[in-house]
């Protein structure tokens, strides 16, 4: 008799535990707008999408309004990059007073090889490069991933 009671109790408790789970899913079914976690991505791209300031997107070399950047072509970023996605081409330039100076010619950035680890930003002593929080980086042609970051005709910004 005792074992029969135990058997029925087991059945009852089993059903009760199932009911507690069903109650939770029913609650979410009847309150569909309470906690929707999915984002409606392509639609919300101009409205509710929230990309943090620090989000590590593509690397850019900011230029000011006079088309000047801060890169001294020291190649520390190139050395810091674990994937070899940065290539700095510099030229020797002679200034008016006869001093030879290394000047940035091309700051080549291969987006396809970048893992967005941020080591180049960390290594840069001039804070010349930053990571933009853009994330829609895909292109149709693989060659478009290789970018020259310095604008044509840009110059090094003199220290104030």
């Amino acid at each position: 008799m005792k074992s029969l009671f135990q058997y029925l109790k087991e059945v009852f408790l089993g059903f009760y535990s199932l009911w507690t789970g069903l109650k939770l899913t029913l609650y979410y079914f009847t309150h569909p707008r309470k906690e929707i976690i999915t984002e409606q991505y392509p639609e919300n791209r101009t409205t509710t999408i929230n990309i943090p300031e620090r989000f590590a997107g593509e690397v850019i070399l900011p230029h000011d309004e006079n088309n000047k950047h801060k890169c001294t072509a020291c190649t520390l970023c190139e050395m810091a990059c674990p994937n070899g996605s940065i290539k700095i081409i510099s030229v020797q330039e002679e200034s008016e007073d006869g001093k030879k100076k290394r000047v940035l010619d091309k700051w080549i950035y291969n987006l396809g090889m970048c893992t967005f680890c941020g080591q180049c930003i960390d290594a840069c002593p001039q804070d010349a490069i930053i990571m933009k929080n853009s994330f829609e980086l895909s292109v149709y042609n693989r060659n478009d991933l290789v970018k020259t970051l310095n604008k044509p005709g840009s110059k090094l910004k003199e220290k104030e």
Binding site: P52, E53, R54, G118
Partner: peptide, 23 residues
């Protein structure tokens, strides 16, 4: 489970810049 995970990853994203491989 992804509901809370998403919130934590948002904190990671805001503070470290990445969601999964932060460095």
């Amino acid at each position: 489970a992804f509901r809370d995970r998403e919130r934590i990853l948002d904190i990671f994203e805001g503070n470290t810049g990445n969601r999964l491989t932060m460095n």
